[in-house]
Amino acid sequence: MLIAGDTLYAGFSDPVFDSQRSFRAVLEATSHPGRIIDVGTPIGAPPPLHPATAAICLALVDFETPVWIQAATDANTHAIENATEHAAESLSQFLRFHCSSPLAADPALAAFAVIHAPAHMPPLTAFSAGLSDYPDRSTTLLIQVDGLSTGRRVQLSGPGIKHTQQLAPSGIPERFWTEWRDNGALFPRGVDVLLICGSDIAALPRTTRVEMTCT
């Protein structure tokens, strides 16, 4: 249902190669946690979606993957409802049209979660951490942040990182890092996170350990 005055944004102009390029960016980011990777696929994204979020959704989401969209279906975020209600609607319209993806009402049932207001996001435990027999059945969170190098610096280590890796995401609540440590303790269960700003992404797979730095 198209809201009057709304625009349905176009998908990839070249679905095969744009999908491949976007996926390789996510694969490179996941292989090197904390490294900032430019997805670099030109695409118009319905606000509040960042171009990289839109590209990743088009590349990875389809009818097999229920998507949870923040605010559209979350009763706990009434405070920010007015600003995001309309945004969430155009976003879900975009995903349903281009990806044919079902929308998950419960974040625990989602394969992907799109979060555009991380300050108001539910705790990481609200999402699916998978089963101990099938830890791959967990939610991948696409979290849009204000910046990847302008916030509080954290030091990352773990698989994919030779020594240590610095990352400074801004616009992410402090509680996220506590929840991230608890998420790591669940291994091999746990959620995986992609931090997104503009066309840049940085991955936090569940194996990545985070230390807060004092600078």
Binding site: P15, V16, S19, Q20, F23, V26, L27, T30, S31, A59, L60, V61, D62, E64, T65, A111, Y134, P135, D136, S138, T140, P159, G160, P188, D192, P205, R206, T207
Partner: peptide
């Protein structure tokens, strides 16, 4: 086909996130 690629790509990403675990 593109849908198969997406399915395999999602499996690859989870495989990288859980080193050594066999993703169906």
């Amino acid at each position: 086909d593109e849908q198969t690629k997406r399915m395999i790509r999602r499996a690859i990403l989870k495989a990288v996130a859980i080193p050594g675990y066999q993703v169906p």
